[in-house]
């Protein structure tokens, strides 16, 4: 498996880890390879958390200080290691993301941060409870620097967590939030390191201090890579906006053409991080699915829905505008999930990756049976409506449009995509097909559990979600 060889490393997806009666006999191996990769990465994560703790505690050990103090120190070390690993997790290394999907990796980043924060909180509380005299260290005016650093680190961590968990509620815009998030993360880590070295119990020896400084530097280097080095390397491979066209449902398709290079190949359903800078059209590194055919090698298209934020200005982006595209990313692609047929469930603008899949399959002359269940607010708002109807003549496609507000003479299904609707419209060979679901969170959750209830194997369902903060 080669890095970036997304077209070839289809054996890496754990969403297919369940043994399924697939069409190909090599599927068992494929599934097990995916599961093994996933388990290996989880093991590596645990090891990376525990190893620094083990080195601090087990080698050249200072005299013990009683169970609770030692336990508290252990939790502190583990919490700090986890915070360092947070930098690595979000570095979008394709090899790490491949078995899980980058969305799950980012969700993991979010969830595991609560565990790290809980460990660090426990670290402090255990000390306060078992050695009440340590509470005095909270008095930052008189406390020694090692304690001040601890307080500063914890404050930065709390602010970081609050700003991330309630970003929308406190109306913190995404762009400044991202900058703040990175800056606070570096502060939490730097103050944490200063605290650990200041306390010095386990890090009295110079080489142990050096090791922790090295760990911290590696974490920050990961951040520097993704925020500075990667963007600079993208500068050499820029794109320009070739055309912008309006789509149904307040969406705009932006066609990008590589400038002075050949661009990259992607598999249908993948996405890239788009940056459109200068002028008021400031989009910095937002994930967008490619909507064009993967067989179209002259350029790449993304379709962006106006959502009232930075996306509202997309329609006014002029041709010739410089753009940067980091990709391809993602495992939401039938090229990784070989099956005798597919069912796509799209909700609203969630049609974008599926549109790329349909266009690509049409260009490839694919004859497998396909079904598209497309939930839209109304037929007027149905993005790509005309083209999807045309694609029906080039593909073996069964189109099921589900408008929430159907016209008066509508005879097809309407309302929400629920279990009853799916049971009614899904094809006979449903248990052999693979399902790709993309749309708003409620639709994805409802579709996923409905399919499971209808006896579709879990490994046959593929989803990616981006609603992170």
């Amino acid at each position: 498996v080669t890095e970036g060889g997304a077209r070839r490393d289809r054996e890496l997806d754990p969403s297919t880890t369940k043994r399924a009666p697939g069409p190909r006999e090599d599927r068992t191996e494929v599934l097990e390879a995916g599961a093994t990769q996933g388990v290996l990465w989880i093991g590596a994560y645990l090891l990376a958390v525990i190893a620094p703790l083990a080195i601090a505690v087990l080698i050249a050990t200072p005299p013990g200080r009683g169970f609770w103090t030692e336990f508290s120190a252990g939790l502190g070390f583990a919490g700090l290691s986890m915070l360092m690993l947070q930098f690595v997790i979000t570095s979008r290394f394709r090899r790490v993301a491949a078995p899980f999907g980058i969305d799950i990796v980012l969700q993991f980043h979010r969830q595991i941060s609560f565990v790290a924060a809980a460990l660090l909180l426990a670290h402090v509380l255990i000390l306060f409870i078992t050695r009440p005299e340590t509470i005095q260290l909270l008095n930052v005016f008189e406390a020694p620097w090692r304690a001040r650093f601890a307080v500063l680190s914890m404050i930065a961590l709390v602010v970081l967590l609050v700003a991330s968990v309630w970003r929308k509620e406190i109306h913190f815009r995404y762009e400044p939030w991202r900058l703040t998030h990175a800056a606070l993360a570096v502060l939490v880590l730097a103050f944490g390191l200063a605290h650990v070295i200041g306390v010095g119990h386990y890090l009295e020896l110079a080489w142990k201090q050096g090791l922790w400084i090295l760990f911290t530097a590696a974490a920050v280097a990961a951040l520097v890579y993704i925020r500075i080095i990667k963007p600079i390397s993208l500068l050499h491979e820029s794109y320009e906006v070739e055309a912008v066209r309006e789509e149904r449902g307040k969406a705009w398709t932006v066609r990008l053409r590589p400038v002075g290079h050949t661009g990259f190949r992607f598999t249908p359903g993948q996405f890239g991080w788009l940056t459109l800078i200068h002028s008021p059209f400031s989009i910095r590194e937002h994930p967008f699915s490619f909507t064009s055919s993967a067989e179209d090698h002259d350029g790449v298209e993304v379709t962006i829905k106006e959502l009232g934020d930075f996306t509202s200005t997309v329609g006014r982006v002029p041709p010739g505008q410089r753009a940067y595209l980091d990709g391809p990313h993602g495992v939401f692609t039938p090229d990784r999930h070989e099956a005798p047929g597919y069912v796509f469930v799209a909700g609203g603008i969630g049609i974008t990756p599926i549109m790329s899949i349909l266009r690509t399959l049409a260009d490839r002359g694919d004859e497998r049976p396909l079904q598209l269940i497309y939930s839209v607010s109304s037929l007027d708002e149905m993005t790509f409506r005309e083209e999807i109807e045309t694609l029906g003549t080039r593909l073996n496609l069964d189109l099921v449009v589900v408008p929430r507000k159907p016209p008066d003479d509508w005879t097809g299904p309407s309302g929400y995509v629920d279990k009853a609707l799916l049971d009614r419209v899904l094809p006979e060979d449903r248990d052999r097909r693979f399902f790709f679901i993309c749309g708003p969170q409620p639709l994805m959750e409802s579709a996923e559990s409905s399919l499971l209830d209808l006896g579709i194997p879990l490994g046959h369902t593929v989803m990616e979600r981006f609603n992170l903060v």
Partner: peptide
């Protein structure tokens, strides 16, 4: 489902770390 599986992994990692930290502390405290 993938999401729930991921949450289980997160909980598992948290418990494993607690266990390791407690064992180290026991070892140290002796």
């Amino acid at each position: 489902m993938r999401y729930r599986r991921m949450v289980r992994v997160v909980v598992g990692i948290g418990l494993a770390i607690l266990l390791v930290a407690a064992s180290f502390a026991l070892l140290e405290a002796r």
